[in-house]
Design a binder for these strands. Structure first.
Lengths: 189, 189
DNA sequence: TTGACACCCACACAAATGTGTGGTATACTC
DNA sequence: GAGTATACCACACATTTGTGTGGGTGTCAA
């Protein structure tokens, strides 16, 4: 199955207002910065921090979040999915997906020669510049005709060569130099 | 052939120590809570908060992060997608590769059921939340057993169903609801 | 009636946190 | 030499933030 990392556990019912507070917290956590107690109060229109504490205590008791003492913004969500209305488990969502950026360049993949490695026509390949690579690495290589190509490097015993990830394409035994190593693939739908 | 094109903006160089500070911040942001100035000082072994401020100022000047004034943990990274956070990107041909960020969440793909669509185990799927989708769209669907799955939506004539992109997996005709539509795939090597 | 809970408030206090204003030293460029 | 950047420090200060204590209302079930 192409399932996904999402913990499931029996849900305790929330009231409408608790739901609203939780929703706000989720939004903020999604934006990578959990709210402070006073930010929650401001958003909800509460005049007292004590009110927010009541809510946080309830949400914690019901298993929706964890808190760290004496720590600013120390609210962490606990993932869960409720039957019916999907509640997305932010805990298992990658907080941020890092794309290599330093000493890199990007190129757009043309063709199908790496399709068995899950690299498709039109994908963006992020390449980190380096002159060497290990056996099996996918690299950007410069061929002697000045063409740049994305292939798997093979350094078995003899002379290194380039291998496509598509049986229809034969290995390349021509001269080449390594431009860099593939570090990311980004695809748009 | 896999080929060509590329420009990529040269990054402003960081010193080794600046790199180390940035790495720590990235780790913490990845754990969904940016560090405080004193946490950075503690980690780096600095005795003064002023030292950290010098580093943050340098990293900000060089375009690696943004800060919000008078806000605890108000450090935001630039150059990585933080679910919801503005700004990703790094250049590619036309300017930069943008990854959808509004109203989205990210999931880590498990399994091989979409491999024929070039989606592999461990890939990060960026999903835009929406309740409907078109025939042929790849969607995140919530099954009745609370499992979330990534599949292609088929709305031919009769009842909509889910289709894997791997012949070994049969279509799913169970009840499901649409959580969102796949807008990006990001893979790390 | 008692108790548990949801749902609010005021206010004080301590801790955490960001900021400001000074230092010192080295290295490099112009 | 002046200027700039890096790389540290000390310390005071204001603000932000979490916490504590105490108060109130209403509902609902036992």
């Amino acid at each position: 199955m192409c399932g996904i990392l999402l913990p499931m556990k029996p849900q305790v019912e929330l009231t409408a207002k608790q739901e609203k507070v939780l929703k706000f917290i989720r939004e903020r956590v999604g934006e990578n910065l959990p709210p402070t107690i006073r930010e929650i109060a401001g958003e909800m229109g509460f005049a007292s921090t004590g009110t927010v504490r009541d809510y946080l205590a309830a949400l914690q008791r019901k298993g929706y979040l964890k808190r760290e003492n004496n720590k600013s913004r120390g609210i962490a969500l606990i993932g869960s999915i409720a039957a019916g209305e999907p509640k997305l488990a932010y805990e298992d969502i990658e907080g941020y997906v890092e794309i290599a950026r330093e000493n890199t360049f990007a190129l757009k993949v043309k063709g199908e020669s790496m399709i068995d490695a899950g690299i498709m026509d039109g994908d963006i390949a992020v390449i980190r510049k380096q002159k060497t690579a290990d056996n099996g690495d996918i690299i950007a290589a410069l061929l002697d005709n000045n063409e740049v190509t994305l292939k798997r490097l093979k350094t078995g015993g003899g002379k290194p060569f380039l291998e496509a990830a598509n049986k229809k394409y034969p290995p390349i035994h021509k001269e080449f130099s390594i431009i860099g190593k593939l570090v990311n693939i980004v695809r748009k739908y």
